[in-house]
Design a protein around this nucleic acid. Structure first.
Length: 482
DNA sequence: TTTTGAGTTGTTCGA
DNA sequence: GTCGAACAACTCAAA
């Protein structure tokens, strides 16, 4: 006889629009809600430091919300299967509900768990709570996965997006007896040294704030999104990525919020929805090409002549390359766990092209430092920048960090915020302080090489070196073909 | 069926 | 200062 149903929370840390929870409410049985902390099961892509910080607060928020409904959040640590099995045995659980994850490691784990639980007579039902569409179900006309965004996006627009799932939260019944739970603190998700103190100024990682962020964005910034999203000094982007990653917002809630504004077909709304579609595309690619977190999608790049150099990598990581827009981005990342999208592209391109460091190094750093670190999006983004991914940037598209700075941060607002030692420089020189005449530097209180580094490499030299490497790589491929 | 044209995010060069 | 061309190779779907 079954006495409980169980909801296994993972990347769906919300009550509303949660299909697994809705199913549990509908099942009518007392509910055990559990979060199993098992980062090793996602290795080598276990959440990094910044992600763990967010996870801690997201779990606290979820536990609060659930407690308000009379259902405690049970926190356990150990192998997911062992934990679920033990709970299922002790509390006579059947069925088990969860919302699916889509990384190679989580797919493999969940498949095995589903099989094992069913084998012991426990029904398992999984749902899609994290994507608009299941990545395996989207195919082009030849039945193949899409490798180009535009046809993918066109195809997506022809499919109906389901409404958010209504969860009858008042139907949730508390467990007959409450399983033991670890304290959230005991998971050790928060840092020992307080590098996170600035995070609190920039983020409130709870569900209420997620809803508020979504509402504020669609009401105040969606209309101008197309125009402002590329300006890192303005509040032009949605900043919803960490909420989406952890499932504090579901993509269907976001989609619906945009539709309700009536701006979905206007420039701003349309552009934003296409960004949501890029997120879908990233999952689609990761699902169909599960090696891509480590290996180039385009095999031509598997033997690319990178020139690994620790000094270069560290200069980039610490925001000391001597290129203000790059350094501003890297420091924003370190301080807040987030970087503006335009600057992510500029900083990534600089690492991969000017410095010839392997894109995997950049991906690993972002993975550890971003609060929105997402295996699908991170992988796609870095491969795109390096030129080896889907819809990749052509080899000759090497961002000029000076031009990019002048174009997208013309007044130097963004640079001044994150590289304060340059804030007194006139806008004309703020993206290339080495070009400023000595009196100008002196007046701004900047001594190059002391207060702020000289460029680690001259733009023209870096560009030429990258083009040479890219051309050599191309030659290798042509030789192989011959 | 085959062909054709277009494709997130750019830069440089020369007229 | 502005403008068009050139800078691969490949995917996808419309014609």
């Amino acid at each position: 006889m079954s006495e409980h149903s169980l909801v296994w929370f993972r990347r769906d840390l919300r009550i509303q629009d949660n299909p697994a929870l809705a199913a549990a409410a509908g099942a009518g049985l007392p509910v055990i809600a559990v979060y199993v902390y098992a980062p090793e099961e996602e290795a080598p892509w276990s959440p990094g430091g910044a992600s763990n910080w967010w996870l801690h607060h997201a779990l606290a928020s979820l536990a609060d919300e659930l407690a308000g409904l009379g259902v405690p959040l049970v926190i356990r640590r150990g192998k997911s299967l062992d934990v679920l099995r033990a709970l299922a045995d002790e509390y006579r659980v059947n069925p088990v509900f969860w919302n699916r994850c889509y990384e190679p490691a989580t797919i493999e784990r969940d498949t095995a768990i589903k099989q094992a639980l069913r084998h012991q007579g426990c029904d398992v039902r999984s749902f899609n709570g994290s994507l608009l569409f299941e990545p395996g179900q989207v195919r082009n006309r030849s039945g193949q996965p899409f490798r180009v965004f535009t046809p993918f996006w066109k195809h997506l627009r022809s499919l109906p997006v389901e409404r958010p799932v209504d969860v009858a939260a008042d139907q949730l019944r508390p467990p007959v007896s409450t399983p033991d739970s670890l304290s959230l603190e005991s998971l050790g998700l928060l840092p020992d040294i307080p590098w996170d103190k600035d995070f609190y100024r920039h983020w409130t990682p709870d569900r209420k704030s997620a809803e508020a962020a979504l509402q504020t964005f669609v009401l105040e910034r969606l209309e101008s999104y197309k125009k402002c999203r590329d300006l890192p000094g303005a509040d032009g982007t949605s900043m919803l990525s960490p909420y989406l990653h952890w499932g504090q917002l579901g993509p269907r809630e976001v989609w619906q919020a945009v539709q309700r504004t009536g701006l979905a077909d206007d420039a701003g709304g349309y552009t934003f929805l296409s960004e949501i579609a890029w997120r879908e595309f990233a999952y689609h690619l990761l699902y169909h090409f599960p090696d891509t977190p480590e290996q180039a999608l385009n095999e031509t790049y598997s033997h690319f002549p990178w020139e690994p150099d620790l000094a270069y990598l560290q200069a980039w990581q610490s925001g000391l390359t001597g290129y203000p827009i790059v350094d501003a981005g890297m420091r924003q990342l370190w301080k807040t766990g987030w970087m503006h999208n335009r600057v992510r592209m500029i900083a990534a391109s600089f690492l991969v092209k000017h410095l010839l460091q392997p894109w995997q190094e950049g991906a690993a750093w972002f993975w550890d430092t971003l609060v929105d670190a997402d295996l699908a999006s991170n992988t796609m983004g870095w491969q795109w920048t390096a030129g080896c991914g889907a819809d990749a940037a052509p080899y000759f598209r090497i961002f000029n960090p000076i031009l990019q700075g002048e174009k997208f941060d013309p007044e130097g607002v963004y640079v001044s915020t994150w590289v304060p030692e340059l804030r007194k420089l006139p806008a004309r020189y703020i993206h290339q302080p080495w070009e400023a005449p000595s009196p100008v530097l002196q007046q701004a209180g900047v001594k190059l090489g002391k207060d702020y580094p000289k460029p680690v490499i001259a733009h023209a030299a870096g560009r030429e070196r990258a083009l040479a490497a890219l051309s050599a790589n191309r030659q290798i491929r042509l030789d192989r073909q011959a």
